[in-house]
Amino acid sequence: MSIQHFRVALIPFFAAFCLPVFAHPETLVKVKDAEDQLGARVGYIELDLNSGKILESFRPEERFPMMSTFKVLLCGAVLSRVDAGQEQLGRRIHYSQNDLVKYSPVTEKHLTDGMTVRELCSAAITMSDNTAANLLLTTIGGPKELTAFLHNMGDHVTRLDRWEPELNEAIPNDERDTTMPAAMATTLRKLLTGELLTLASRQQLIDWMEADKVAGPLLRSALPAGWFIADKSGASERGSRGIIAALGPDGKPSRIVVIYTTGSQATMDERNRQIAEIGASLIKHW
């Protein structure tokens, strides 16, 4: 058993032996400061991975655009179909130039040979490839079927209504393609630790998130040596930015963190910096 498999397999085991986890309101002070700095709403939640207890939250039940963070949920739905014998990670999917949409750094290189379902999930999560996400959405029946999958998990909040890139429109008060921090954190925890997916599929999902290559300026920039993080970021119109993550010290995840912001006029660099500073406060007061 690899170190990674050891880590995921023991998450339920550690729940019975973990020390009490204490919240630190200092992080919420930073979240509120980020709102002031960005001139935008910020949603935040910090969840204990083992118990599911909410440690801190700010606007946990307000809607925010999901942006590309939905791609983790999408690959969770794909893995659920794999577990049920309805899909194979090794199945190759062929597509054409007409299928390519904006920001497809991986799929645009494989027009001649296509990509496997496994490769598409990797591209969608680690590189946020939009065509990969659309191709995967097609395999499960489209955005409405992803919403149905989430409903069956008990998440009646999170919804996907459109495809890439239209889902990134982020119109104020538009509930399409949105979630709430509390709903996203709970759903992510179920995917990573619950019985919905097999152990192998849970491991695969967290491996893809751990290999994320496009979230460096966010929480990863504040991470001390030896800490673990598996994450997925997102960005969209109207100053929207977000990240969902499982992270913790000693090389294993122990908390879920979800951060969303929307409605800012700030630059992408400034949005990144504010999220990184929230992460730094979280780690300092861990």
Score class of each variant (00 low, 15 high):
Gly239Lys: 04
Leu38Met: 09
Pro253Tyr: 07
Gly39Val: 09
Trp286Arg: 02
Glu56Pro: 00
Gly194Cys: 12
Ala222Thr: 13
Pro65Ile: 04
Leu191Arg: 00
Phe6Pro: 09
Thr262Asp: 09
Ala200Gln: 15
Pro12Ile: 15
Met209Ile: 15
Asp231Val: 04
Ile93Phe: 05
Asn173His: 12
Asp269Ile: 11
Leu135Val: 12
Ser240Val: 04
Glu237His: 07
Lys252Phe: 11
Arg91Asn: 07
Val42Cys: 06
Leu38Ala: 07
Asp212Ile: 06
Val101Ala: 03
Gln97Ile: 14
Trp208Gln: 01
Met268Arg: 05
Arg255Asp: 00
Asp269Glu: 14
Arg238Gly: 14
Ala77Lys: 10
Val72Asp: 03
Ser254Tyr: 07
Met127Leu: 11
Ser57Leu: 06
Ala222Val: 15
Arg202Thr: 11
Glu164Gln: 03
Glu175Asn: 11
Thr198Tyr: 06
Glu237Met: 08
Val257Ile: 13
Ile54Ser: 06
Ile229Val: 06
Ile278Thr: 00
Asn98Cys: 11
Ala225Phe: 10
Ser68Pro: 00
Ile256Ala: 03
Pro224Tyr: 02
Pro105Ala: 06
Trp227Met: 01
Leu38Thr: 08
Leu196Pro: 13
Ser254Arg: 09
Val214Asn: 10
Thr158His: 00
Met180Arg: 10
Thr69Ala: 05
Arg63Val: 05
Leu100Cys: 07
Val157Glu: 08
Glu61Arg: 15
Lys53Asn: 11
Leu160Pro: 02
Ile283Leu: 08
Arg202Leu: 03
Glu145Asp: 12
Asn173Gly: 10
His151Asp: 12
Arg202Gln: 05
Tyr260Cys: 03
Asn134Tyr: 00
Arg220Thr: 02
Phe70Tyr: 06
Val82Cys: 11
Leu282Ile: 14
Ile243Thr: 02
Glu210Arg: 13
Ala77Arg: 08
Lys53Ile: 12
Asn173Ile: 07
Leu197Pro: 01
Ser233Gly: 07
Asp83Glu: 08
Arg241Ala: 02
Lys32Arg: 13
Asp177Gly: 02
Leu111Val: 14
Ile244Cys: 06
Thr178Arg: 01
Met67Tyr: 00
Pro143Gln: 03
Leu219Gln: 01
Leu219Asp: 03
Thr69Cys: 02
Ser236Asn: 11
Glu169Met: 10
Met127Ile: 09
Asn173Tyr: 10
Asp48Glu: 10
Lys30Thr: 09
Ile256Asn: 00
Thr158Met: 00
Glu61Phe: 14
Ala200Pro: 14
Met66Val: 09
Lys144Trp: 08
Ala215Cys: 04
Glu277Asp: 09
Met1Thr: 06
Met127Trp: 13
Met153Cys: 12
Arg271Pro: 08
Pro20Arg: 14
Ala182Cys: 12
Trp227Leu: 00
Ala182Ser: 13
Asp174Thr: 05
Ile93Val: 13
Asp177Ser: 01
Arg91Asp: 03
Val214Leu: 13
Asn134Ile: 02
Phe149Leu: 08
Asp161Ser: 04
Glu61Val: 11
Leu223Glu: 01
Ser236Asp: 07
Pro65Arg: 03
Arg41Ser: 08
Ala225Thr: 13
Ala222Trp: 07
Leu89Met: 09
Leu28Arg: 07
Tyr260Asp: 01
Gln37His: 13
Pro249Ile: 04
Gly239Trp: 04
Pro25Asn: 08
Phe13Val: 11
Ser80Glu: 11
Asp161Cys: 02
Val101Gly: 03
Ala266Leu: 08
Arg189Gly: 08
Ala183Gln: 10
Leu136Val: 05
Leu160Phe: 07
Arg220Gln: 02
Arg255Ser: 02
Glu210Lys: 11
Thr262Gly: 08
Thr178Glu: 01
Lys144Ile: 10
Leu79Arg: 00
Asp269Trp: 09
